[in-house]
Amino acid sequence: MPAQNFEASVLVNSQQAADIFLLTVYLPPQYDKPKAGQFYMLRAWRADEPPLLSRPISVHHYEEGTRALSFLYQVKGNGTQKLAALKQGDTVQLTGPAGNGFPIEGRHVAVVGGGIGTAPLFYLAEQLTAAGVQTECLLGFRDEPYRLAHFARGGRNVRVATDTGSYGHHGFVTELLEPAQYDVVYICGPEPMMRATAKKCLAAGVKCYVSMERKMACGLGACLGCTCKTEKGELVCICKEGPVFEGGVFFG
C-alpha cells in the first residue's frame, strides 16, 4: 500500500541517554498501523523551514491498544535537534508507514544492533516473541547503553558490548554472535558492523536480514534519491524495496 501523510500529536518526548530521545505519538485510527522494520518520514518544522527534507526514522514500537507509536532517535544535526525540541501536545508530520519491514521468521533467532541501529529491533523483538519465536538480543553501543530493560521484556536474553568497555563485553557486538545457534539473524547498525555481522552469518550458512540506510528525499519511491546497487549490480530503491534485505544482497 502506498504511504499516507498526516499530523500526529506528541504524547511524550523524553531523553534516554546523552544524545538519545524517545518520541511517542498517537497514531489516529484512520491510518495504517506499521510493521516492524518500517519507517516514517518525520517533520517537526514547517515546509519552508530548514532542513528542506523530512527525516526518516524507524518504528521503535507500536502499541495496538493505545495506538502509541514510538521512535528512538539520536540527535545528529538540525533535523533531529528539532525533533528533540518537541513537547507533549505538539504536532509532528508523518509520511508512512514506508518500506517493507522485517519478515517474522525462524524458531530461535538473534537480533543484533549497533548503536541507534538498535531502534527498529525492539518492535521486531516484540513481534518475534509474540509469534512464539525464541529471541536473543545482542546490542552494541559506543559507551552508554539504552533501552536494555525493554529488550529484556518477556524474558528475552540480552547481551551487551561496548566500545569503551563501560558495560558488558569490551569490544564489538559481532564478537558476541555465534550464528550457528540461530536459524535467522536480524541486523541493524552502521554499515561496517552490518557487513561484518552478515558475513559471519553467511559463512556459517545462517540466513540473515539487514536494514539499510541512505539519504532520502521522499521515502515513497518517487525521487530515486536512495537507489543502491546490490552485489549483483541490480538497482534497488532502499525506501520502497527495502530498507530490509537479505544479508547476501549487499554483503554476500
Partner: peptide
Amino acid sequence: GNEGERLYETPAGLINSI
C-alpha cells in the same frame, strides 16, 4: 543513473544527481 551521493541539501535548496 549515477553512482555515489545523489542528494545534498543547501539553504532552501536541494542538489540532486539522480
